[in-house]
C-alpha cells in the first residue's frame, strides 16, 4: 500500500471523515492503515453489525463457489426421491440435508444457488440505479438553474408514480427475465440517489475548497469527481446498503409472483412460490428459502444500521451520550478514553 498514491485522495475525504481525529497518539501511523483499523474496531464494537457483515461475507463466498459447494445439481430431478423431509425427520437422509421438492430436487443445493440470483440482482440494480442516480444528482447540484429545476421536477414526478404497478406492466409487456428485473428495479430506484446526492452537492457547492479548486482552473468533471464525490461516499454507502436490502426483497417478491427470474434458473422467491402448493405436506419447501431471504435481508439491514450510526458524527455523539447515561462502568471507561 503506497502512501503517495493514497494520501491526496484521502485528504479530500477529510470533512466527513469517520474519525473525528480524537487520537493524536497514533497520528504518525499511515492513514490507510489507521482507517482500516478504526473500521475494524468500530465493527467489533457493534456485535449485530459484525454478525451481519460475517453472514454477508459467507453469503458472497457461497454465491461465488455455489457449483462446488452444493451437494447436487439444483435442477437435477429425481421423481423417486420427491418430497423427502430434512435429515432430522423420519425418512430424511444425509444425501438431502434439507429434503427434496416436488420434483425431487435438492432443497439445500437450490438455496445455495439461489444466493447467486439474489446477490446478482441486488448488486446489478444498486450499481445501475446508483450510478445513474448519483450522476444525475451531481449534475443537478453542480449545474443548478434550469437543469436543476428540470431534474427535480422529473424526480418528483417519478416518486409520485405507482412504481411497482408500472414495473408489473413493463414485465408483462417485455417479458420477465433476470435482466429485465434488474432494469425495472433500477428504473424504480434511481431517484433516491439523485435526491441525496443533489442535496449534499448543493450544501458543498460554495465551500472554500470547492471554490478554490475551481479558481485554480479545475474542469467541472474534476471538481465533481475529485472534490465533491468523496464527500458523498459515506451517506451513499449507507443508502446503497439499505437499497440493496429492499431490492433483495423486491426480487424475491417478483419471482414469487412469477414475474421475476424464470425457471430453470433458481431464485428463493421462485422456490417459495413452487413450494406453496405443497405447503401443508412439505413445510420445508417454503420455510428454508424464506429463512434464507429473511436472514440475508436482516444481515444487510444490520450492516446498514451500523454504517449509518458510525459514519454520521451526530449519531455517534448521540450514541456516546446514551451509553454514558446508561451504564456507570462504561461511563468511567469511555470518559477515560474520550468519545470514540
Amino acid at each position: 500500500m503506497s502512501q503517495d498514491v493514497d494520501l491526496p485522495a484521502a485528504s479530500t475525504v477529510e470533512p466527513v471523515k469517520v474519525e473525528p481525529a480524537a487520537d493524536g497518539l497514533r497520528a504518525e501511523a499511515p492513514l490507510a492503515e489507521r482507517r482500516a483499523e478504526s473500521i475494524w474496531s468500530e465493527l467489533l464494537a457493534d456485535i449485530p453489525g459484525l454478525l451481519g457483515a460475517v453472514f454477508l461475507a459467507a453469503l458472497v463466498i457461497v454465491a461465488l463457489f455455489a457449483p462446488w459447494i452444493a451437494p447436487h445439481d439444483p435442477a437435477a430431478q429425481n421423481i423417486i426421491l420427491r418430497l423427502r423431509p430434512p435429515v432430522w425427520m423420519d425418512g430424511g437422509s444425509w444425501a438431502h440435508i434439507l429434503g427434496t421438492d416436488h420434483l425431487g430436487r435438492d432443497v439445500l443445493s437450490r438455496i445455495l444457488h439461489g444466493s447467486r440470483i439474489s446477490l446478482l440482482v441486488g448488486l446489478g440494480t444498486v450499481a445501475l440505479a446508483g450510478g445513474f442516480g448519483v450522476l444525475i444528482g451531481l449534475i443537478a447540484g453542480y449545474a443548478g438553474g434550469r437543469t436543476d429545476a428540470f431534474i427535480v421536477a422529473v424526480v418528483d414526478i417519478q416518486i409520485a408514480f405507482p412504481g411497482l404497478l408500472l414495473a408489473l406492466m413493463i414485465l408483462a409487456v417485455v417479458g420477465p427475465s433476470t435482466m429485465t428485473v434488474i432494469v425495472v428495479l433500477a428504473l424504480n430506484g434511481w431517484m433516491v440517489y439523485t435526491r441525496i446526492t443533489r442535496s449534499i452537492v448543493l450544501g458543498l457547492r460554495h465551500t472554500a475548497y470547492v471554490e478554490a479548486a475551481e479558481m485554480v482552473g479545475c474542469r467541472p468533471g474534476r471538481v465533481l469527481w475529485r472534490h465533491l464525490l468523496p464527500n458523498l461516499a459515506s451517506p451513499l454507502l449507507t443508502l446503497a446498503t439499505l437499497e440493496f436490502a429492499r431490492i433483495v426483497l423486491a426480487e424475491a417478491a417478483l419471482s414469487f409472483l412469477g414475474l421475476g427470474v424464470q425457471p430453470p434458473a433458481t431464485s428463493w422467491g421462485l422456490d417459495v412460490a413452487q413450494g406453496k402448493d405443497y405447503m401443508f405436506r412439505a413445510w420445508w419447501l417454503v420455510t428454508f428459502p424464506g429463512i434464507a431471504i429473511a436472514l440475508t435481508v436482516l444481515a444487510i439491514n444490520l450492516v446498514a444500521s451500523w454504517s449509518r450510526v458510525t459514519s454520521d458524527p451526530l449519531e455517534r455523539e448521540k450514541r456516546f451520550a446514551r451509553r454514558i447515561i446508561g451504564s456507570p462502568g462504561l461511563r468511567a471507561r469511555m470518559l477515560a478514553k474520550g468519545p470514540s
Partner: peptide, 12 residues
C-alpha cells in the same frame, strides 16, 4: 426482523 422478512412468506 420484521423489516427483513419477505411479506409473501410472512403471509404464508
Amino acid at each position: 426482523i420484521g423489516l427483513s422478512v419477505p411479506q409473501f412468506w410472512l403471509g404464508l
